[in-house]
């Protein structure tokens, strides 16, 4: 799975492969976003507010994920 394949799709994302070590955490985040969407709709918020809120969260998470993956790529290999 790559960053640009997250759902909802980030506005801008590099096609970086998500390392196995991060996959479970990323999948939890995807599930949490889906739950947030449900709760925002259940509270009667308009689709435009829901979309804007989720877009904000997806984009900032994608940015952080990119930084995290790059940091992991720089980590030491075996000696």
């Amino acid at each position: 799975m790559r960053i640009d394949q997250l759902q909802p799709t980030p506005s801008v994302a590099e096609p970086l492969e998500i390392p196995a070590e991060l996959l479970a955490s990323v999948q939890r985040h995807q599930a949490h976003l889906a739950e947030l969407i449900v709760s925002l709709r259940a509270a009667g918020l308009g689709e435009d507010v829901v979309d804007a809120s989720i877009r904000t969260l997806v984009d900032s998470y994608a940015d952080d994920l990119t930084v995290a993956i790059r940091a992991m790529m720089k980590a030491p290999d075996h000696g």
Binding site: E21, L22, H32, S39, L40, A43, V67
Partner: peptide, 23 residues
């Protein structure tokens, strides 16, 4: 409904913290 929304936002905060930890 307020508490459900706040709980879901809290999950997102934890996800962000966990991402930093894993990295």
């Amino acid at each position: 409904a307020d508490i459900a929304i706040l709980s879901n936002f809290a999950n997102i905060v934890c996800d962000e913290l966990e991402l930093r930890l894993i990295a």
